[in-house]
Write a protein that binds this DNA or RNA. Sequence first.
DNA 1: AGATTTCTCTTCGTTGAGGAAGAGATTAGG
DNA 2: CCTAATCTCTTCCTCAACGAAGAGAAATCT
Lengths: 157, 157
Amino acid sequence: MGEPVSTPALRSDASEVYRRYLSAVMLHGHASAKACELGATDLYALNILQLTGPMTPGELGTRTGLTTGPTTRLIDRLEQAGYVRRAADPGDRRKVIVEPIGEPADLDRVMAPARQRIGELLGGYSPEQLEVLFDYFARATDAYQEAADQLRAKSAD
Amino acid sequence: MGEPVSTPALRSDASEVYRRYLSAVMLHGHASAKACELGATDLYALNILQLTGPMTPGELGTRTGLTTGPTTRLIDRLEQAGYVRRAADPGDRRKVIVEPIGEPADLDRVMAPARQRIGELLGGYSPEQLEVLFDYFARATDAYQEAADQLRAKSAD
DNA sequence: AGATTTCTCTTCGTTGAGGAAGAGATTAGG
DNA sequence: CCTAATCTCTTCCTCAACGAAGAGAAATCT
């Protein structure tokens, strides 16, 4: 009601479309975290690990902005839930390397509906269009990562 | 090591590219929330309000999965931070309508770096390519929203 | 080899958010 | 006009997560 479906309202305000898109992505992310019984910091750390790769607890603590105590307990929770595993560093036996495990059961089950819908959506595009989309995905990944680093640097003033 | 940099590994696994993209978006979202001193649930509710529009505290509580007590305190925090405002419903004087305020100062300042980078990124595409991208944004918005609703319905079993 | 530094883990105290029950206010129905 | 139902807000309680300080183990330097 009140929204004309037949007329293309998609291009009316590009900024609004993009804001709604970001809100939907974040919304789904939080709903997934709740379904997995994951805390906010836990999901935050998990995203860092998935994006940057294995790292030591010290580096993870620095990136999450946590001190050593909470970092240890954070890794304990993630390890107990089956999302990461602790591995020994061959070079330094003091160090511990935290690495994400490929496909956690809960997260995979929770992400399944979204994965299927996005898969169907992407399947409707031509190869040329998919090339445009994935080019954007790759470039936007760097853009958001740089913006996040910038925010992290600013908050440490 | 073990990763050939000179060969184009970007197109080798599309799923991996998309996962990294989602991780980067979520990562930036959490970093923004931390920079705004917003809790996880606060940002969650804010996204719901931005995506769905004004609603009563009762409906917001249902969507966030919170009971009435925490919902009131949640709205208090958002109102005090300047992100939403309480308005009276002309029809029912019992009801309160929570509506998001257009451009919160902190959130706008925090989102500025990402907005600029994404703006520059989108500026490099042709009109036809932009049409593909924004078509995806609009469709993915619905997909993620439906997936989030599905998750919410499942968790209420 | 001994001392210093680095890294991770443990423990205690505190702060913050969410759940449950009850009160006040307003609307609808008999 | 009076009773029942609905909606929001308040209060008390519990619990999980973070910060700070200290201990143990291992690598580096003298």
